[in-house]
């Protein structure tokens, strides 16, 4: 794999400049913070509710912004110019993901701080959040590469937002509708369960939860890479 830190840095700096001047997208980072403030005042009673703003950060910030950044590059034909430059697939994808990764980490940390949530084990939660961030970035890349315009991308990620942010809440209905049991395997559900297992000190379940999130991440990244390679051709 041909990777250059200099090329990734160049793409990251360019994305940062573009992002900071694109208010329609950059203001999205405020949404989870507003939600967290609301929850702080209302008081969150369960882990599910504590993690709702966190999972929403992943959907509204990580996936949405990543999808829009990629879709905009496609829409304005700049992605093709990047592909024709010496930047490799890894340079482009990692360079373009670094900005969203950094923003996500900051917003998730702020959200947790505003909520006043104290994790049972900071290291385990940090691991879960980091892997989840990569997963949602991959999801954003897929949405961005599948769509042709920013407008299409913002519509395409709506089901993603609904399934991954609100999926864990729907698990409460699993006793009535057993089919909803499947939702516990969502990475967003596993993140909440990870915190529960961490509090209980259940090592096996912690590993299983982290492995499930990592599994989703690997599958997403493989699909994103395949789609990117397909987009190298202008068929």
């Amino acid at each position: 794999m041909n990777v250059s830190v200099k090329r990734m840095r160049a793409i990251f700096i360019k994305d940062y400049k573009e992002f900071s001047r694109n208010y329609a997208i950059s203001t999205m980072v405020l949404m989870p913070l507003v939600l967290a403030l609301f929850y702080q005042n209302a008081g969150a009673a369960s882990l599910d509710l504590y993690f709702l703003p966190v999972n929403m950060t992943f959907a509204f910030v990580t996936t949405f912004i990543q999808a829009c950044l990629i879709a905009e590059e496609k829409e304005s034909n700049t992605l093709r110019s990047l592909m024709m430059s010496p930047a490799s697939m890894a340079d482009i994808l990692i360079g373009k993901s670094t900005l969203v990764f950094s923003i996500t980490i900051v917003i998730v940390t702020l959200t947790i701080m505003i909520l006043g949530f104290t994790p049972a084990n900071l290291f385990i939660l940090a691991a879960g959040l980091t892997i989840s961030t990569v997963f949602y970035i991959g999801l954003g890349i897929i949405c961005g590469l599948f769509t042709k315009t920013v407008m299409e991308a913002s519509v395409a990620i709506l089901p993603v937002m609904a399934i991954f942010s609100l999926g864990p809440l729907a698990m409460g209905l699993a006793e009535t509708y057993s089919v909803l049991e499947v939702l516990k395997w969502l990475p967003s559900s596993q993140l909440i369960m990870l915190e529960g297992y961490s509090a209980a000190g259940n090592i096996t379940d912690i590993i299983i939860s982290l492995a499930v999130i990592a599994g989703w991440t690997v599958i997403t990244l493989v699909i994103a890479s395949m789609l990117f390679k397909k987009r190298l051709k202008d068929e």
Binding site: K6, A10, K17, T78, L82, A87
Partner: peptide
């Protein structure tokens, strides 16, 4: 390669656009 689609970043300046490619080509 010069194509009919400019493929330039509209929110960036001319220099910032060229800066990106200057770094990509080293």
């Amino acid at each position: 390669l010069l194509t009919d689609n400019s493929g330039l970043y509209k929110r960036l300046s001319v220099e910032e656009n060229l800066m990106l490619y200057k770094d990509l080509y080293g």
